[in-house]
Nucleic acid binder design. Structure first.
Length: 432
RNA sequence: GCCGUCGUAGCUCAGUCGGUAGAGCGUGUGACUGUUAAUCACAAGGUCAACGGUUCGAUCCCGUUCGACGGCGCCA
């Protein structure tokens, strides 16, 4: 016997008059005396089940009448087309089996953000949350498919580390037996080591940042797609970035248009995402923003306000390149054509969603690296293995890190990044 | 780290110019054979975040603490 059809399948190819079985959860019930209307949901959709007294055993009718929201049920009955039913079809129940009852569901009509976050383990049953998770799966699928097709090898760097990759960024410290260690905030240095045997590598790992950031684009734990390739300069790496992001978006467009619409994102917006993306030098960006009336000088970083102003009217991501050396990480390569800047690129999502990728060509000169580390007063002991990479057959190489949830936030038009992950970890929340 | 807003029923909120509190939703009971976040009737449900101060009297005024949310900086 074949398994019962999912609701989405039943609605996509309705077999009117045929008996169907639905395994799902009570989404909503209404009762009108001897008729109970139970809207049932599963992972694919919702359908109305009409339960009439007399059409099924008395105790099953009573069970349907009393079933609270989110009770799990198995319903059997024939499918009918009916304009009065939400979605246009309904199942007239000949059987209604209560599998698991439910307490009064804490999430009802109007709810505060706090309650929804406290009850995240239940809130993820909502259609919006489910849609986001499906889009995210397609983003990851699209990324992996493109990377495989382009000869990037997935590697598995450690999460426990003793390296503070970017100096300034705060780390989660933990006890590692009788020593200290940190949760990784970036796999970059490990990926740099791996290119010497594998050439083109990437990793998909959680990254952890103990930043006390209260914003709509920061998580303390997020999924980080990092990539490193040997024999490539910053310009070549930017092509990888725009092609990869385009592939992610294309996969979403292929699989998840219905979910996008549910979330309020018009798929047509995303069809405009194609390489090449616009490239703007930092100095030009500053000028353009000044022309808009913003008060900026060369050397100040682009903040949230500036990023928003710069990309508000874009439909496609934009690269900003050649940031001043002082405001960027120690491992970024100086640009010989403009030595006050480094060969780096930030990819900014359109519509003001902000940075989704930070990438650069890496400094290969050992002395310059040491100099930068000293200037920033970064303790050198933990970096000896990293400096070794410049001592043994150093090659030009470039790479970047991409925040998966930031991409999902943009693609799904989410107000807050925490909705791009089922159980968000932020500065104020580590539960549930 | 900085700035701001909020905490009253299970939930969303109103309210008390300082005299111990109300609505809607949800829940319970009953009615209803075509509902669309159904409707109608009745009922239960409160240490007004915690602690301290002022006061005859504080949920309300003042202070402290805790919690939550929003924004900045920093980043992906």
């Amino acid at each position: 016997m074949s398994p019962p059809r999912k609701i989405g399948r039943i609605l996509a190819s309705p077999a009117v008059g045929q008996e169907e079985t639905v395994q799902g959860w009570v989404y909503r019930t209404r009762s009108s005396g001897a008729i109970v209307y139970a809207v049932v949901r599963d992972s694919t959709g919702i359908i109305q089940v009409t339960v009439k007294k007399g059409n099924l055993p008395e105790e099953e009718f009573e069970a349907a009448k009393a079933a609270p929201v989110e009770s799990s049920v198995i319903v059997t009955g024939k499918l009918f087309e009916d304009k009065r039913a939400p979605g246009g079809f309904e199942i007239k129940a000949s059987g209604f089996k209560l599998v698991g009852g439910a307490m009064p569901f804490p999430i009802t009509e109007y709810q505060s953000e706090e309650l929804l976050l406290d009850n995240r383990h239940l809130w993820i049953r909502s259609r919006e949350q489910a849609a986001v998770m499906k889009v995210k799966a397609s983003v990851l699928e699209g990324a992996r498919a493109w990377l495989k097709a382009n000869d990037f090898i997935e590697v598995t760097p450690p999460i426990l580390t003793q390296n503070a990759c970017e100096g300034g960024v705060t780390l989660f410290k933990l006890k590692y037996f009788d020593r200290e260690a940190y949760l990784s905030q970036s796999a970059q240095m490990y990926l740099e080591a791996l290119i010497f045997s594998l050439d083109r590598v990437y990793s998909l790992t959680p990254s952890f940042r103990a930043e006390k950031s209260r914003t709509t684009r920061h998580l303390t734990e997020y999924w980080h797609l990092e990539l490193e390739e040997a024999w490539t300069d910053n310009a070549g790496n930017m092509e990888v970035q725009e092609n990869l992001v385009t592939a992610m978006v294309e996969q979403v467009l292929q699989d998840r248009q219905e979910e996008l619409r549910l979330l309020g994102r018009d798929p047509a917006d995303l069809r405009e995402v194609r390489p090449p993306f616009k490239r703007v030098r930092y100095s030009q960006a500053i000028e353009a923003l000044r022309a808009q009336g913003l008060d900026l000088s060369f050397g100040s970083d682009l903040g949230a306000v500036e990023e928003r102003a710069f990309t508000a009217n874009e439909k496609v991501p934009v690269f900003v390149t050649n940031f001043p050396k002082e405001i960027k990480a120690f491992y970024m390569k100086e640009d010989p054509e403009e030595p006050s800047t480094v060969k780096c690129a930030d990819m900014l999502a359109p519509e003001g969603y902000g940075e989704i990728i930070g990438g650069s060509e890496r400094e290969t000169d050992l002395d310059k690296l040491v100099e930068r580390l000293q200037a920033l007063e970064i303790p050198m002991e933990a970096y000896q293995w990293y400096l070794d990479l410049r001592r043994f057959g150093s090659v030009p190489h470039s790479g970047f890190g991409l925040g998966i949830e930031r991409v999902v936030r943009w693609v799904c038009r989410l107000e807050h990044i925490r909705d791009a992950v089922p159980f968000p970890r932020t500065v104020a929340r580590c539960y549930p």
